[in-house]
């Protein structure tokens, strides 16, 4: 059940709650951005998925 009435405590703690929310959102954004960059740095990657891909075969075979 949601707390409907706003207590004085909620008002006094608002800056902490909003601040912590922004910090957590920022942390998520940093981890996401870092993941995108790290995965892109691996270069193009592909594997066989039911279809033979000639470009993936080694040259001498």
């Amino acid at each position: 059940m949601a707390i409907r009435a706003e207590h004085d405590l909620h008002r006094r703690r608002r800056s902490r709650n909003v601040g912590l929310g922004l910090v957590l959102a920022g942390f998520v954004a940093v981890v996401f951005g870092l993941s995108v960059v790290k995965i892109r740095m691996l270069g193009a990657s592909q594997a066989f998925d039911h279809v033979l891909r000639p470009e993936m075969l080694e040259q001498d075979q």
Binding site: H7, D8, L9, R12, S15, R16, V18, G19, L20
Partner: peptide
């Protein structure tokens, strides 16, 4: 629960206090 304000007597920490 209005007596909660009677229990928390110490000054409430603001976000700035954690930054400090």
């Amino acid at each position: 629960m209005s007596d909660a304000s009677l229990i928390t007597r110490e000054p409430e920490a603001q976000f700035g206090d954690y930054v400090a």
